[in-house]
Computed example of a mutant assay.
Amino acid sequence: METVERWTTRSDAWTPEDDNKLAEIVLRHIREGSTQLNAFVEAANLLGRTPAACGYRWNGVVRRNYSDEIKQAKQEKKSLSTLKGHFARRRTWSPDLEDTSIDGIIRALKQHERLYYELLDRNRELQEQIHSLQQEVEQLQAENRQLRDREMSSGSAADLLSEDSKTLLKIMERARKLLEAEEK
């Protein structure tokens, strides 16, 4: 039996821990926008294998167990690249490091100050928008409460109306019976 186990379990066989580490590294590289080749190099250094062996293991065995995580990592990468693009466009204030003269530094500081005040204005606008939306939410909640109260009160009014109608019908039925009795 020992001979069979020795032949079926290689000394360089992949363990579940190795597979998990490989998956973590590849998924992180996907999230960060790096290539899988870079992930295989990093995994090879960590696991004591070649990048080719890591790539073969990932593509042949491990990848199919992580399809949901791969989709999620790609979505995170997309979100991250969108944010990076947004911040890259917003980084108009960064000073020109090549112009280290006093005038260049003053220009950079003035540009930074302009951006600072623009951001303060935008922040104020957003705060006002938040306040306005909060008031709208409160107003809608109050309307919702009024409608619920009205529905509840109209429900009890409907019950009263139903009872009154039944009472009126009983009275009318008694009156009809009395008239019939008098006619006889």
Rank of each mutant, 00 (worst) to 15 (best):
M1L: 13
E2A: 13
E5D: 15
E5M: 11
E5Q: 12
E5I: 09
R6H: 14
R6P: 09
R6D: 15
W7K: 04
T8R: 01
T9E: 10
R10T: 09
S11F: 05
D12K: 01
A13G: 12
T15P: 09
P16R: 00
E17W: 00
E17M: 04
D18H: 06
D19C: 04
N20R: 06
N20S: 12
L22P: 00
L22W: 00
E24V: 08
I25T: 01
L27Q: 01
R31C: 05
E32N: 07
G33R: 00
G33W: 01
S34N: 07
N38K: 03
N38I: 02
F40A: 01
F40T: 01
E42N: 03
E42G: 01
A44N: 02
A44D: 00
N45W: 02
L47E: 02
G48P: 04
T50R: 00
P51V: 04
P51S: 05
G55A: 10
R57H: 06
W58L: 01
N59F: 07
G60D: 04
V61M: 03
V62M: 02
R63N: 07
R64V: 11
Y66P: 02
S67F: 06
S67T: 14
D68E: 12
I70P: 02
I70S: 04
A73E: 03
K74S: 12
K74C: 10
K77H: 06
K78P: 00
S79V: 03
L80H: 09
S81W: 02
S81P: 04
K84L: 10
H86S: 15
A88W: 03
R90S: 12
T92E: 06
W93A: 04
S94Y: 02
D96V: 04
L97A: 11
T100I: 08
S101V: 05
I102D: 15
I105P: 05
I106T: 12
R107K: 08
L109T: 09
Y117G: 13
E118W: 00
D121M: 07
R122W: 07
R122E: 15
N123H: 09
R124S: 15
E125A: 14
L126H: 04
E128D: 15
E128M: 12
Q129M: 11
H131G: 12
S132Y: 02
S132H: 03
S132D: 09
Q135K: 09
E136L: 09
V137I: 10
V137T: 11
V137H: 08
E138L: 13
E138N: 15
Q139N: 15
L140F: 05
L140V: 05
Q141K: 14
Q141A: 12
A142G: 08
A142P: 06
N144R: 11
Q146H: 13
L147Q: 11
L147D: 10
R148C: 11
E151N: 15
E151A: 13
G155L: 06
A158E: 09
S162C: 10
K166W: 03
K166V: 13
L169K: 11
L169Y: 05
K170E: 15
K170A: 14
K170G: 13
I171G: 13
M172V: 06
E173G: 06
R176V: 06
R176I: 05
K177G: 07
L178M: 08
L178R: 08
L179Y: 04
E180Q: 09
A181K: 09
E182Q: 07
E183Q: 09
